[in-house]
Amino acid sequence: MEEKRKTERNASGVRLWLGFALLFAALLGFAFWNIVAGSTALSVSEVFDGLLHANSAHRVIVMDVRMVRILPAILLGGALALSGFLLQTFFNNPIAGPFILGISSGAKLVLSVTMIGFLSRGIAVGSVTLIVASFVGAMLSMAFVLAISYRVKRMSMLIICGVMIGYICSAITEFVIRFADDSNIVKLHDWAMGSFANIQWDNVIVIAAVVLPALVITFLLSKPIGAYQLGETYAQNMGVNIKAFRIALILLSGVLSACVTAFAGPISFVGVAVPHLMRRLFKTAKPIVMIPACFLGGAVFCLFCDLIARTAFAPNELSISSVTAVFGAPIVILVMLRRQKEGGR
């Protein structure tokens, strides 16, 4: 018995290291592939030349075309998956996520109103303004979803309401964009579909400044998150200050998904698919593993999807959201079917 237990524990330890090794390898692999591939294909030596030498002939394409897109894909992909994981914990619902619950769409709505308002007056929109507007939108949708979640206890109803909120917000966004100046429309339209294409270096710095601290804070909350997975009653008895904890969870997931929407537009299904894949990969739901795993997994997932978005039909580019939907939506259906089989709600 003791022996068996020991081998089982060792097995889970090995799984842990292998899992993270795999994620890191995939991250580096896809990042590198993303640098190499594109309308101007680069060789390996050209890539290193561009990365290491400031005055290299390949500097511009490596750094200002490829890297400026890869880094946000990593950071925002991780942020999305993490946000999804937090929302799933909060609602105790495996298919909750910022896109499905309409939070991304709410952010999109307030963001487009703000952008049109600024642009029509000829004021440039800064990174911080983008994030703040997006956060306000995310919080407004979140407030709706929360209000609904107090009334409906069935998880399917919550999801349906979230999807409806998403549709309403998208419809109003369409409507608002109609009234924008012609010059704004093109850019807004691109962004409203979801894309990593329009991000600048100064945006990347702001993204890192928001996402990385949020990641650290989330990781430090892994203990109460673990307690919360047992349900509120037990979490409180374990010594978690439920009220403060719930607020922290809402703010963190809101900030993360708002940051994504602000710079890359709404990106679908990453928040649901990645945490699910990570649970399967690591065979655990422990936050202390899941939080870094979701972040890395989200980064890998978005790098992969962006690679397809850029190269599959080059020179035409797909919206990132349609690629993530193709890979993410089946996973969501799978999760729901599994729940059904297990006799879940």
Partner: peptide, 30 residues
């Protein structure tokens, strides 16, 4: 406490569940 709330305990072993009792005694990361 031992209450009537149903615990899902997704992907947790019985030992994991029992170990959550140590929560008030463990450090920052549990």
């Amino acid at each position: 406490i031992v209450m009537t709330d149903r615990i899902k305990g997704e992907l947790m072993t019985c030992r994991d569940i029992a170990a959550t009792g140590r929560y008030p005694y463990t450090g920052r990361l549990g």
